[in-house]
């Protein structure tokens, strides 16, 4: 076979593989959206779930997912930012740093159901948090930290060393150089990392079943006191999220329209995660342009 033919064959194979990947994605998305979207309505998004009757919605689950996401990011972002800065800017190249990196890799490959059970034993039982949004948020932090740390570290490392040298050569301290020059230059990448990890957190179910719980007690959306048990802001209440709801309706749902509800909820979940992904690209590009291009 001459080199031209070999090239054609290789190109053909590569194209076929790409088509396969895209095809699987399109098929999945299309199936979920086509079966789910017809069941999504304003009523579906704004009413509470029903236990036995049909016609229930996903209002509380949708809110719980968002609230849990915000809490998770509030806990995990500062930790990930600190460790990302350490790893990219300060960590010397030695055995200790290698241990940290290996630990992060191991943490990122822990199955989420294991993280969930660990969270159940430690937070729910031992620390007596009960099934609660807080326990869920801490479990999700464990799940989220490795990837977020990695993405922040990589965004910081993408900033050329020349920028650091420029800051240092002007008599700025290392810390001022990092906060004033390196961090802003890495911001688009960091934002993208946060939003992509938000998508993963939003769709997570296994780690939450044993931590945030599987029930969505009645809450009042007009009670803004986070210490009141009936408030939607109370982090100590159990909270079934959208992803957990899909799993539960499918396994033990007794409502006549369980299938429709799980299809509709799946469609909503997918759409929200897609929005996160598109939003990440858009926001990242927008911030980058704001910072680099002419006003």
């Amino acid at each position: 076979m001459n080199s031209k033919a070999a090239n054609n064959v290789a190109t053909g194979v590569i194209y076929a593989l790409v088509v396969a990947v895209v095809g699987i994605l399109v098929f999945l998305l299309g199936y979920i959206l086509i079966t789910g979207v017809p069941h999504v309505s304003f009523h579906f998004l704004t009413s509470a779930a029903e236990s036995f009757k049909s016609g229930g919605g996903i209002r509380d689950q949708l809110f719980n997912s968002l609230y849990l996401l915000v809490l998770t990011l509030l806990i995990s972002f500062p930790i990930a930012l600190g460790s990302g800065i350490y790893l990219s800017e300060y960590a010397p190249n030695n055995w200790f740093t290698n241990i940290i990196r290996t630990a992060i890799e191991v943490l990122s490959s822990l199955p989420s159901v294991v993280v969930g059970l660990f969270g159940y034993l430690l937070f729910v039982i031992k620390f007596n948090l009960g099934f609660s949004i807080l326990a869920g948020a801490i479990a999700l932090t464990f799940f989220n930290l490795p990837l977020l740390t990695r993405s922040i570290e990589e965004s910081l490392e993408d900033v050329p060393d020349l920028q650091r040298e420029a800051g240092l050569s002007l008599g700025l301290s290392r810390w001022k150089t990092i906060t004033g020059i390196v961090f802003p230059a890495a911001l688009p990448g960091i934002l993208t990392g946060i939003i992509l990890s938000a998508g993963r957190v939003f769709g997570e179910a296994a780690a939450l079943i044993y931590t945030a719980g599987q029930s969505a007690p009645m809450v009042s959306y007009s009670n803004w006191n986070p210490f009141s048990p009936a408030s939607f802001l109370n982090p100590m209440r159990p909270a079934e999220t959208l992803a957990v709801h899909i799993w539960k309706v499918n396994t033990e749902g007794v409502t006549p329209d369980a299938l429709q509800i799980s299809s509709g909820a799946s469609a909503v979940l997918i759409v929200v995660i897609l929005l996160f992904n598109l939003g990440a690209r858009f926001l990242g590009n927008w911030v980058y342009k704001r910072m680099t291009a002419a006003k």
């Binding site: 920028q163 040298e165 800051g167």
Partner: peptide, 19 residues
């Protein structure tokens, strides 16, 4: 850091800040 305020450096490749 004080030294570098008195003795400043320009590098081979231009490295303006992204500002």
């Amino acid at each position: 850091y004080e030294v570098r305020k008195h003795i400043s450096m320009v590098f081979q490749r231009p490295n303006p800040f992204a500002k």
